[in-house]
Amino acid sequence: MKVCITSSGNSPDSKLDNRFGRCSYFVIYDTVTLGMEFLPNPYKEIEEGAGTASVQLIASRGVSKIVSGEFGIKIKPLLDSLKIQMIVLKNEEKSIQDIVDMLNH
C-alpha cells in the first residue's frame, strides 16, 4: 500500500507540511517495499487549483492514504470519490520519519 505524506523538506527529518495542495514535497511511502520517494510539488506557487492538481498527481501514483495537516474544501469530495483516505494530523512537530514509524506501528 502506498501512503502520501506532505513534507516541508526533502529529507526524512523534515517536518510535516500543514497544507496539502501547497506543501513543498510529497513523500510517497510504500509500506511493502519500505521505500520513500520525495516529489517536489510542482503546484506550490500556482495561483488556483493547486489542491485538485495535486490530487491528480497523487492519485496517478496509486496512493490509498494521504497524511497532511489540512485539506481544502474542494479536495474532500474528490478524494471521497477516488476512495483515498484522508488522515488529518494537527501536529507540525512530527517529522516524516515519525509518521512513517507510526504507519509501521
Binding site: 478524494l79 471521497d80 476512495k83 483516505q85 484522508m86 488522515i87 488529518v88 494530523l89 494537527k90 501536529n91
Partner: peptide, 18 residues
C-alpha cells in the same frame, strides 16, 4: 490525536489508520 475518514464503508473501523 489525528483525524481520519473511512472511504470503505462496508468495513468496520477498529484501529487508527495512522
Amino acid at each position: 490525536s489525528c483525524w481520519f475518514n473511512h472511504p470503505a464503508k462496508e468495513d468496520k473501523v477498529t484501529e487508527c489508520a495512522l
